[in-house]
Design a protein around this nucleic acid. Structure first.
Lengths: 203, 203
DNA sequence: GTCTATACTCGGATAGAC
DNA sequence: GTCTATCCGAGTATAGAC
């Protein structure tokens, strides 16, 4: 949920496009839905953004940067490893709670159009977890944590933060959770996940 | 990858539909693609399955049962908790390695069409993790593991097994892994993930 | 059962008035 | 900038010959 500062037509369009694309994806979204959501007509959409493709690109670029920005910010910060893990999980789960459709949207489109994704949206993000890997290797040398490959630790951490948002509908059916219980479950995970990780790696 | 026993037209269609739907999803799939993939024409598709919708349902029902079957089988088996965790992670990651598009396909469609999913594909799967929860509560009582809510443990376990398959394209870009390194990475996770979990919960 | 040809519908895009 | 009306390609589905 990115908020518009004022409701110019342009902002109404972006807000509507965000909502529709995030929920339905590129293939499932309809220009008519976006127009309706924005309270305008299809022609005006094309006036502002020549094509569906162009509009999608704006939304996807924005979304993928939102999806990675917070990761990058925290990972690159200069705090001790355990604090970094706590901060990452807490803040990332909080951000995703505000934007529950974000993970599936970004990951799905990255899978469906890997080439496009690689070409256009992957500028200067190489080796995102290199810094994190260094932190880990250092703590292993210092005997603060048991030896394990940084890649697995990183993948585990991100998995436990992000996956619940993707699995939500199935999870709610199989666990019988209601909406507010799920919110509470996510809230708990801000503490539970880093605790789970640290229990596992601490020496 | 579910294999066809013989190549009747029906099996060629199912194989083609599986491939196309799994990769592109309902909204992105084209009947023409499926026909081409099967080496027949569109008309014949409609002869066997009246509509795209009907064909999709067959494939989705089959996929979601594949996605849950192995979970259910292992969870309900009658072995000690730690062995169950090891068995689950190893076998589930192995199954997904054979069917890498399965998780995103099932989870994506479950999100896009939650109502349909609930109505048609959720027969007798309620409380999938109830049995697992009992195992955990018992081991907590026996002081074999530290106290933690079964829901979180279960979610953590499934997250770490499934998420890598969904994040693959992004992961490969950000980590710089090549295809064969990723295969190896998944292979390692069959051991690493249960070890990671058990280290965390063992008392 | 399998094909070619075609009908029909949906949805992205444009023309042109205001 | 915003609208109504319309075009046109893509894609699902059907008719009908073989």
């Amino acid at each position: 949920m990115v908020k518009s500062l004022d409701d110019t037509t342009e902002n109404k369009i972006l807000g509507a496009a965000r909502k529709v694309f995030w929920e339905k994806g590129m293939a499932g979204a309809r220009m008519q839905d976006i127009a309706d959501q924005a309270g305008i007509n299809k022609a005006l959409l094309h006036y502002y953004y020549r094509s569906k493709e162009k509009l999608f690109e704006v939304i996807f670029r924005e979304a993928s940067s939102l999806f990675f920005m917070k990761i990058a910010g925290i990972i690159e910060s200069d705090i001790p490893l355990f604090a970094k893990i706590e901060s990452f999980c807490g803040e990332y789960i909080a951000m995703l709670s505000q934007n529950p459709y974000l993970p599936l949207f970004v990951l799905n489109e990255a899978n469906k159009q890997p080439y496009r994704f690689k070409q256009r949206f992957w500028k200067n993000r190489e080796n995102l977890f290199e810094r994190f890997a260094r932190d880990i290797m250092m703590e292993i040398e210092n005997k603060k944590i048991r030896p394990l490959k940084p890649a697995h630790l990183f993948m585990n951490m991100v998995s436990m933060c992000v996956f619940p948002f993707i699995a939500k509908p199935i999870w709610m059916m199989s666990s019988g959770m209601k909406e507010d219980e799920f919110i509470h479950f996510l809230e708990e995970r801000k503490k539970i996940v880093p605790e789970f990780i640290i229990c596992s790696i601490k020496k």
